[in-house]
Simulated assay, not measured.
Amino acid sequence: MALLSSIDHDLLNEETIQILNTKSIYSVLDFLNEDVDEIAHLTDLTYVDIFSIQQHIYQKFNTTSISGLDLYEKIKESHISTGIPRLDTALKGGLPCGKITEVCGLPCSGKTQLVTAISCNVSHHLKRNIIYVDAKNDFSGSRIYQILKETGCEEKELASSMDRIKVVRLWNMNALIYFIHELHRKESLRNCVSLVVVDSLPCLMLQHKGEKSKESIGLLNLFVNAARLVGTEHGISFIIVNLTTRWNELLVTEEDGKNVSKWVEKKVPALGKYWQFIPTTFIRTDIDKSCELKKIDISVKSSCDVLFGNTISFELNSIGIK
């Protein structure tokens, strides 16, 4: 409990506090529990003075109440809508602000399509800036134009929406970490930024695999700390694109008393075991090969590996994802 000496009030001077201390009144709680008549008798404080000090303590230490409506509005502000209603429902409101969300899948499973569609929606509907870190050097401005054009907006509005998507090309982890720190330091750089997309992090991380594996974990840790700092301080949501890799593993099983060997395909996220505890939300993408149309299946899980909902199927078309 806070001491009386920590209370910044004109009537609680050093002499008054010393007098109260002689009667074992040291903390704020002691002061509030003590009888008002006793305090007035010990000190030169009037009843009005004592009530004024008590009110000051209540205002400083009491929790403030919040209505159900205010709490609902606060919860809404804690998420960024993806502009895809069914995905927002699966995400319990949208992308969590100040947190890291992972989009992961096999090559050509719709990861870039998904983050491109989300970027367009945040820019066009929410009128917020997006920083798109293009680590693969394959960002398509014409694809952004095509998606926005399908919304039916005028050329001037379309140009404004495209301008709000800031593309940054980085080639190594050190440059990415430096950029995230600059984002924290420079207000002009993060002006109206609600979303940072890194597509994709394995492109930068795989440079440090093998003999440099320890260095890679260190760099990944530095990036995570910087991203969490920027996210928490400024309410920015991060989408990190990860890659699922395929491995063939020789599995030996016993059948009818004989050892039988067979190759089994194993799918492993490229960023390794350390990364699996970093994002708060995981979005998994996969191509639905059973359908003639090009569709992707999306499943959403929390960091506790809790499935938020059933797998959702989306059609890939000229407007991105439907």
Rank of each mutant, 00 (worst) to 15 (best):
R228L: 11
I283V: 02
T46R: 02
D199A: 15
F282N: 12
Y178M: 10
S140R: 13
E315Y: 14
Q55L: 15
S194K: 12
S6H: 00
S161D: 06
G152S: 10
K273M: 15
A135E: 08
S194R: 01
S261V: 14
S299F: 10
L42C: 14
L251W: 15
N310D: 10
V252E: 07
K23E: 05
I66N: 01
I321Y: 08
L158T: 12
Y26T: 09
Y58M: 03
L189P: 03
I296E: 08
K76A: 04
C203L: 11
H181I: 08
L3A: 11
Y47R: 12
D305E: 06
K111H: 04
G105V: 04
K209G: 08
C104V: 11
Q54F: 00
A40T: 04
K214S: 13
G231S: 04
R128W: 03
E155W: 02
S52L: 01
C108D: 15
I53L: 03
L250V: 11
K149P: 12
K301N: 05
L11Y: 12
T16Q: 05
K267F: 03
K127N: 14
S142E: 14
V28I: 07
D297L: 09
I278Q: 11
A90P: 07
L126V: 12
G210Y: 05
K266Q: 15
T101C: 10
Q146T: 09
L176C: 02
I118F: 07
L271H: 09
S313N: 02
P107R: 02
I180C: 06
K295N: 13
I131A: 00
V268M: 09
V241T: 06
L4A: 09
R185L: 10
Y145N: 14
P202S: 00
I75Q: 04
D8E: 15
K74D: 13
I278G: 03
W247M: 10
I39N: 11
L71C: 04
E154H: 00
K136N: 13
E154A: 03
K74V: 07
H125M: 08
S65Q: 05
F31L: 08
S194V: 15
S213G: 01
W275L: 11
G309T: 01
L271A: 08
V103R: 14
Q207D: 12
L220N: 10
S290P: 00
V268W: 11
S161L: 06
I236H: 06
R190P: 00
G257K: 04
S142G: 13
G68L: 11
V197N: 00
L3F: 02
H124L: 08
Q55N: 14
A175H: 03
N225K: 05
F277W: 05
S200N: 09
R143G: 00
N174V: 15
L126N: 14
D134R: 09
P202E: 01
D70K: 01
V224E: 13
E182D: 03
